[in-house]
Amino acid sequence: MAGVMESVNQRTQLVGQNRLELLLFRLEGPQIYGINVFKVKEVLQCPKLTNLPQASSVVRGVAHIREGTIPILDLSMATGNQPIQDIENRFVIITEYNIRVQGFLVSGVERIINMNWEDIQPPPKGTGHEHYLTAVTKYEDELVEIIDVEKILAEVSPSDDSLSDDIITEEVSAAAKNIEIMIADDSKIARKQISRTLEKVGYVVRQFNDGKEAHDHLEELVSQGIKPSQKYPILISDIEMPEMDGYTLTAEIRANPQLQDMYVVLHTSLSGVFNKAMVSKVGADDFLAKFQPDELGKLVIDRITSLGLTAPQEQTEE
């Protein structure tokens, strides 16, 4: 137990400091890629794979690891490139995304580096892999590409983003009309999933591509004399975002007297054991692992219902 708590304490030192750790790896070619260490459960040499009938060609098979059966996805094929060869001598990164465990087949694993989110930038427009990139950075003068894993998983194994019939009642739909919900997420597929879910209820969704963009918008509202927490009864933020992550966004909101009453929910594919400690440290109001449309719908509906809102109640600062 002491070892676990020490590990939690070490990881939570990064919280609110806008920092992350990246595991660097390569596919078929010289390009370096990165994945957040928080999403990595372990790295191992590719085990024996068993074919999975009728599976996507991206799924090279399943592996039996620690009494569990895990699908192994070829990350090179998933991003539109050639399949990884000689897989017996390659590596698998076991990850946990969206409450699911899967392995990513890669050619080689390099090292773990500590980065500042301010050095992580949105992908440049016009790049060859733009469709599958969520961010880019540089390390020792080499470009590091961070893949939009959520998009890959949505293509290989689409999740159901429909809401249960008993969640959307006439009363709920009437109350949702014209109420704006603010979301911040750097993944296009994640923004679409969240927006579709909330728009089905009847809410108006205002999207932002990262924490800095969301924070700048909140400060702009304050400069206009608008109270952000009245315009947006809830802010749903991803954790991993370039320039400013969700932890830092929440910490900045809590540190600003004009923003600190914002209701912040961290909604993330990071579903590891450290999240509860991190959420508590930065002062978020709630945490929800992606992607659970019913849970997301219920959370927002309960929040709006608790406020008794039927329409936006914009207020100016005195």
Rank of each mutant, 00 (worst) to 15 (best):
R66S: 11
T79I: 15
E6L: 13
L235P: 00
W117L: 09
K138M: 11
N98M: 10
S271Y: 03
T127W: 12
N36G: 06
R26E: 12
S76C: 12
M77Y: 03
T137H: 04
S271V: 10
K188T: 09
R26S: 11
H64D: 13
I146E: 04
I65Q: 07
F25Y: 15
H215F: 15
M182L: 15
T250K: 07
E180S: 14
V8R: 14
L22E: 02
M5Q: 14
F208W: 06
A63Q: 04
A2L: 13
L143F: 08
D148G: 10
L105N: 02
I152T: 05
T79P: 01
M77C: 09
I253T: 01
M182Y: 04
I234R: 00
D210G: 05
A154Q: 13
G29V: 02
P71S: 10
E28N: 13
T95I: 04
Q313W: 01
R19F: 04
F291D: 04
P123E: 10
L266E: 03
I112K: 15
E130N: 12
Q82A: 13
K48F: 08
D238E: 11
P83S: 11
E42M: 08
I236Q: 00
P293M: 12
M5L: 14
A63M: 07
F291G: 00
Q85P: 02
